[in-house]
Amino acid sequence: MTRGLLNDRNREAWQAAKEKDEALLVGYLVAGDPAREASLSMVRESVEAGIDVVELGVPGRRPEMDGPIIQRAHKRALDGGMSDEEELLAYWRAIRQQVAVPFWAMGYKSDVVGSGLYKKLIREQLVDALVLPDCTLEEQVAIQQYTADFGVDIVRFINSAMDEETMKRVCDGATIIYAQSYAGTTGDPLANVSDLSQLCSRIRHYLPEGMIVSGFGLRTPKLVGEAVRSGFDGAVVGSALVARCENQENDYLYRMVAEMKMQTVRSNREEESL
């Protein structure tokens, strides 16, 4: 059995992938983008196409750690009504009823923590993990002390530029690590994804039982396959999917998800790209 996770859905999804000799495909979409009903449909159909875990972005006014593709998605969602907390919670309740896979809420500190939104999401059992990229490690640890009672994991971040001492501190008490394949904002089309095996090995040394997923720059099925064969438990894809939402290329979105999911099979040696 997989161990180290606080959340049952996360644990069960990971265990099911292990039994099939697969990694998890974590797909990032922004709640309410490009519009409420279209977003609900896209999330449902993307899960049908192969997404194992939905990382659902909480729309924010200053998504500074994201690139322009995801920034525009935040604006579309806010313009469409997701700026109202009750509308956002209603959206989250609806998608939780419609989709059974784990949901990770990704949001910025001012939008999720400072507002108290994360407590509402947790108390209603609407999320299975929190992804808080602009929280410090100390803040993430403090929030995890609260969420642990509700069985909600906190995703912590590591990048290849970290020294060993810092990496060890981040892994101490962690349940899920998000390994960033490069430094900078999301969706950089010129980013070079390399040395994933070395990064995975370094993290695994300090987190032998937790989940380690890789993200940033995994814009094609081939790159997803490289991350999986580097030893990661999951691959996170965001900007490549959000770009399809922006252009309302639904069939393209679902085909891309299906092709990426095929590359999470560890025995798969085919490296197809779009």
Rank of each mutant, 00 (worst) to 15 (best):
residue 9 R to F: 01
residue 9 R to D: 01
residue 19 E to D: 15
residue 22 E to N: 10
residue 22 E to P: 03
residue 22 E to L: 02
residue 24 L to N: 00
residue 27 G to R: 02
residue 28 Y to A: 00
residue 29 L to I: 05
residue 29 L to Y: 05
residue 31 A to E: 09
residue 32 G to V: 06
residue 34 P to D: 11
residue 35 A to C: 08
residue 35 A to F: 13
residue 41 S to Y: 06
residue 41 S to T: 06
residue 44 R to N: 03
residue 45 E to Y: 09
residue 58 V to N: 04
residue 62 R to S: 10
residue 65 M to Q: 14
residue 69 I to Q: 06
residue 71 Q to F: 10
residue 76 R to L: 02
residue 85 E to T: 12
residue 86 E to A: 13
residue 90 A to D: 14
residue 91 Y to G: 00
residue 94 A to Q: 11
residue 94 A to H: 03
residue 95 I to M: 07
residue 97 Q to R: 15
residue 98 Q to D: 13
residue 101 V to A: 02
residue 108 Y to R: 04
residue 109 K to C: 08
residue 111 D to F: 04
residue 111 D to K: 02
residue 120 K to P: 04
residue 121 L to C: 10
residue 123 R to C: 10
residue 125 Q to Y: 08
residue 126 L to G: 10
residue 126 L to K: 10
residue 127 V to W: 08
residue 130 L to Y: 12
residue 138 E to A: 13
residue 138 E to T: 08
residue 140 Q to N: 14
residue 141 V to L: 09
residue 144 Q to H: 09
residue 150 F to A: 14
residue 153 D to F: 02
residue 156 R to Y: 04
residue 159 N to T: 12
residue 159 N to S: 13
residue 164 E to F: 01
residue 165 E to A: 12
residue 169 R to N: 12
residue 171 C to A: 09
residue 172 D to M: 05
residue 178 Y to F: 14
residue 185 T to Q: 11
residue 189 P to N: 06
residue 190 L to T: 14
residue 192 N to A: 11
residue 193 V to H: 04
residue 195 D to Q: 11
residue 200 C to V: 06
residue 201 S to L: 11
residue 203 I to Y: 06
residue 206 Y to D: 13
residue 208 P to G: 06
residue 215 G to C: 09
residue 217 G to T: 06
residue 222 K to C: 04
residue 223 L to G: 02
residue 225 G to P: 00
residue 230 S to V: 00
residue 230 S to D: 03
residue 233 D to C: 10
residue 234 G to A: 09
residue 234 G to I: 00
residue 234 G to P: 00
residue 234 G to N: 07
residue 237 V to G: 03
residue 238 G to E: 08
residue 241 L to N: 13
residue 245 C to N: 10
residue 250 N to L: 12
residue 251 D to P: 04
residue 252 Y to P: 01
residue 252 Y to F: 09
residue 255 R to E: 13
residue 256 M to Q: 11
residue 257 V to H: 07
residue 261 K to V: 06
residue 262 M to H: 09
residue 264 T to H: 11
residue 266 R to N: 07
residue 268 N to L: 01
residue 269 R to M: 08
